[in-house]
């Protein structure tokens, strides 16, 4: 990999992050005359004078009493110290504290979904491509059409009702003791696995279909390349051709989709988390939105943006490793 290419990509990502950070700060302030009013809407029989006092105190407490540019500098300064601000919710917890609390639980779901989805998706995709036009392939295509048409929440509700409530194979919703009783022991880990089963299954369905379709199409495209014909002519074994030559070269689009799914990985699946009472990032964002808790919304958005930029950077760098021909901005 060219060193200059990597440096360019890193600098470009930093630049994008700075822009995102600025937008993230200023967009919530558009159209809001006074952020303190978001925290304390006018109430009951309070007089204007009393309300003004409350607003002033709120401005001071949350740092809205200085000019907007100064607020931005304070915000950026805080970011460098890992401080994403203070949430509006009662008890005024730190935004970072709330995110750190929820992020691991979302990662449990998302990473499991991604890994299982990748393994099964690639396996099914390769099989469908190799059996092109036969029942394995048509089954995949038909299943994809159905699964893409089914919304995630519908699959989640079906799984919750049938596998959870009716057959009682897995918990229909998260055991409330799962988080509070968690420890690094086998019982607690097994409890997490069983509670994660249905949410992961719900998310996996779409994920498998997506990866399988992508793999199938990429493998078919690569199979028709001249170098595969050459490999066959050389008398290489089918498994060698399939996994060493075909699949490696078919990985580029899959790597792209993995990179693009990183933001979902961190942001969680709002609806799935809701249905299964899974207290992750998705529900945290929903709570922030419902409570007009925009410091928390800003924190989550910044984190998501940061991870997405990082994921795209890593994807770009991996691209070069997989295919040295790839360069960005090279006009030759």
């Amino acid at each position: 990999m060219k060193k200059s290419y990597a440096i360019k990509r890193v600098l470009y990502s930093v630049f994008v992050f700075v822009i995102v950070m600025a937008l993230n700060f200023f967009i919530p302030r558009i159209g809001v005359a006074d952020p303190a009013e978001r925290y304390y809407p006018p109430q009951g029989n309070m007089t204007d004078a009393q309300y003004e006092i409350i607003k002033q105190l709120t401005r001071e407490q949350y740092g809205f009493d200085v000019s907007t540019p100064q607020q931005f500098l304070n915000y950026v300064g805080g970011l460098f110290q890992g401080d994403l601000g203070t949430s509006f919710r009662s008890g005024s917890p730190g935004v970072m504290e709330l995110i750190v609390d929820r992020l691991p639980w979302t990662l449990v779901l998302s990473v499991s979904t991604m890994l299982l989805g990748l393994i099964f998706g690639i396996m099914i995709g390769v099989i469908a491509a190799m059996k092109r036009g036969r029942w394995q392939d048509t089954t995949l295509l038909n299943a994809s059409t159905i699964m893409i048409a089914l919304p995630g929440f519908f699959i989640a509700l079906l799984l919750s009702f049938f596998l959870g409530f009716e057959l009682e194979i897995f918990p229909a919703y998260t055991d409330p003791n799962m988080v509070s009783d968690f420890g690094w022991n086998m019982t607690a880990i097994l409890r997490v696995i069983e509670n994660a089963a249905l949410p992961v299954l719900s998310m996996m369905v779409g994920s498998i279909v997506g990866y399988a379709q992508g793999t199938r199409n990429a493998v078919i495209a690569v199979t028709n390349e001249d170098f595969i014909l050459t490999a066959k002519a050389k008398g290489l074994r089918n498994t060698t051709i399939r996994y060493k030559h075909t699949l490696r070269n078919a990985m580029l689009p899959i790597v792209t989709s993995i990179g693009m799914s990183i933001s979902g990985l961190i942001g969680g699946q709002v609806v799935i988390e809701q249905i299964f009472n899974w207290n992750g990032m998705g529900t945290l964002f929903l709570e922030a939105n419902n409570m007009n808790d925009y410091p928390l919304m800003m924190g989550i958005m910044l984190l998501l943006s940061g991870f997405t930029i990082l994921a795209i950077l890593i994807t770009d760098l991996i691209y070069v490793l997989l295919d040295p021909r790839v360069t960005v901005g090279d006009r030759r």
């Binding site: 009682e168 194979i169 897995f170 918990p171 229909a172 055991d175 409330p176 409890r191």
Partner: peptide, 12 residues
Amino acid sequence: FFFTLHACSNPG
């Protein structure tokens, strides 16, 4: 695996 999970617990 499924039996183990099934036997673990069920909030209901």
